[in-house]
Every structure is written in structure tokens, then in C-alpha cells.
Design a protein around this nucleic acid. Structure first.
Length: 111
DNA sequence: AACCTGACTTCGG
DNA sequence: TCCGAAGCCAGGT
């Protein structure tokens, strides 16, 4: 599918800086639909490879990796560690430290 | 059309 | 802090 919402989501994800992360809900909100967190996940699942998206920089609202072990969890964690992001013993990262805080105004004007 | 299934989130207890 | 339930929305059957 290729709605404006989908385009915005991809556009936004591509802009997450190295060493920072964004949450599903945050991306949904930036794209104009605060209730579409699950759709953001769906977009990642379906087209992160095709669109060359930095999918590993997207985590859930608790600062955890949502992927299941052997389903990509280890890969994502490794990619984030490579960007100097650290995890605690429970596999969580500190959102206060790593959460991306973009200046919101521009997204609507760029697309 | 109905029903199920998610790489989700928020709220209450 | 840790579940469970409910809300959400698109795709697959």
C-alpha cells in the first residue's frame, strides 16, 4: 500500500540519526496518526528491506526491542550496540538518553 | 463480511 | 514495576 501516511512513515524513519532511536508511537504521531503504532510496525515488517530503512532504530515505548529471539532480536541489538547504544541487564535502553527528538514542524511541509 | 493476528500503547489495579 | 484488558488499524484467510 502507498498512502500518504505510509510515505511519511518511511520518510521519517530514514531520518532517525545514527546512535538515536524512535518509538513506534512517536513515528506514528509524527506521520500524522497517533493511533497507528501497529501500522508502523507493519510497515517495517513489510518494507524495511526494500526501502533500506534503518529499522533497527525503532523500539517500543519501554525502550525494549520488540522482536522475538531468533526473529531478529539479536541482530537489532547488535546493530544498536554498534552505534554505541548500551543496554541494561533486562535488555532495555535508556530512552531519556537515546530517544530522537526531532523538530516536528517540518514533516508536514516536506511531503 | 467476519475473524484472526501482529516488530504497539495506554491505563488501572 | 509488572500484568491484563482494551483500543487501534491493515493484511491475510
Amino acid at each position: 500500500m502507498s498512502t500518504l501516511f505510509f510515505q511519511r512513515v518511511k520518510h521519517i524513519i530514514k531520518r532517525i540519526p545514527k546512535g538515536r532511536v524512535a518509538t513506534y508511537g512517536q513515528i506514528a504521531e509524527l506521520a500524522g496518526n497517533h493511533r497507528a503504532a501497529r501500522q508502523v510496525a507493519w510497515i517495517l515488517h513489510s518494507s524495511s528491506e526494500k526501502e533500506r530503512l534503518p529499522w533497527h532504530r525503532v523500539v517500543n515505548s519501554q525502550g525494549e526491542i520488540s522482536l522475538k529471539p531468533k526473529q531478529g532480536y539479536e541482530v537489532q541489538k547488535a546493530l544498536l550496540k554498534k552505534e554505541s547504544i548500551e543496554f541494561d541487564q533486562d535488555g532495555r535502553l535508556d530512552l531519556n538518553q537515546y530517544l530522537w527528538k526531532p523538530s516536528v514542524a517540518k514533516w508536514y511541509t516536506e511531503l
